[in-house]
């Protein structure tokens, strides 16, 4: 059985949205396809009739400042994001995450939209975007809407996108002002599946020697990517010290249950790494935010 019968390459968003409606089903959109192709080849997804390729749509292939925000098109390859000076300036955590996903050949093809649309609990790009206060831009034939990233995820592999109607067009990230910075880090297991044991991203604002605002996300920490408001609250209005970091860690381990994954990590090892990553990353961001 062929993995697909028909392959469409629309040149504009409107055309893409139209073919999503009109093409013979089952229809799936394909961006980089580096995950989707494997899902199809390895039988995790049934063959489809139509694949709609989004990589030729120029509106979705852009990194630019729009007003007070940074816009990244969903079909932008990870390698472009990882090497973009704009992204590095405003969203260093995303630069770091995109530079760590898979290998160079895959990054040349795989897209940020694909990373997010798979809705995995610990995708590197997603975890970074979550800490960066990202809003997803969603488009259908009637117009556009924005959704805070966290609200896009309904469960593992499930998003709030209306299948067959809506597309993820891109992401809006706040620009980085003085005193703000971000970082991403992760720990992999050398053997076995190509997923991080734990990844963690932090964005913070440093004002008058204190942390004035902070966002922390880490994965896998539940069915969907999430932030840790209690931990964030505990760290706010304090300067960065090891002591506060430890206090925050206690709160974080209370706030999140890091579960075990077979052949990857025990729950205890995840908790242990959470401590290491929190302390190291926080220290990095604190220094960057100077």
């Amino acid at each position: 059985m062929n993995l697909w019968q028909q392959y469409l390459r629309p040149r504009s968003l409107t055309e893409a949205l139209q073919v999503l409606h009109s093409a013979p089903s089952p229809v799936r959109v394909i961006a980089g396809g580096t995950d989707l192709m494997l899902d199809l080849k390895q039988g995790r997804l049934p063959p489809v009739h139509t694949l709609v390729d989004l990589t030729g749509i120029s509106e979705m292939n852009v990194i630019e400042i729009r007003g007070k925000e940074l816009f990244i098109g969903a079909a932008t390859p990870l390698s472009q994001i990882a090497t973009s000076p704009l992204v590095e300036e405003h969203a260093r955590a995303l630069t770091e995450a995109c530079g760590l996903i898979a290998g160079p050949q895959v990054r040349n093809v795989a897209t940020l939209g694909g990373n997010v649309a798979h809705a995995l609990p610990a995708a590197d790009g997603t975890i970074a975007l979550t800490a960066l206060g990202t809003q997803a831009l969603i488009v259908d034939l009637n117009g556009r809407r924005r959704l805070p990233l966290a609200e896009l995820f309904l469960g593992p592999g499930e998003t709030a996108l209306k299948v067959g109607q809506e597309l993820l067009e891109g992401f809006y990230l706040p620009l980085c002002s003085t005193g703000q910075a971000s970082a991403f880090n992760r720990v992999m297991r050398v053997q076995g599946i190509a997923l991080p044991i734990l990844n963690l991203a932090i964005w913070l604002e440093r004002k008058n020697g204190n942390i004035s605002q902070i966002h922390i996300s880490a994965g896998p920490s539940g069915p969907t990517p999430r932030r840790f408001p209690k931990t964030e609250e505990a760290l706010c209005r304090q300067p960065f010290t090891s002591e506060f970091c430890e206090r925050a860690l206690v709160i974080m381990l209370d706030e999140v249950h890091f579960r075990a994954s077979p052949h990857r990590a025990s729950s205890e090892y995840r908790q242990h790494l959470a401590a290491v990553l929190l302390q190291d990353t926080l220290k990095t961001v604190w220094q960057r935010a100077r």
């Binding site: 392959y7 390459r9 394909i30 396809g33 192709m37 390729d53 160079p104 050949q105 093809v109």
Partner: peptide, 13 residues
């Protein structure tokens, strides 16, 4: 100009 893995690259692209 970009290195790409052709085993997961749809020919039509």
């Amino acid at each position: 100009g970009q290195a790409v893995m052709s085993c997961v690259y749809p020919a039509e692209r």
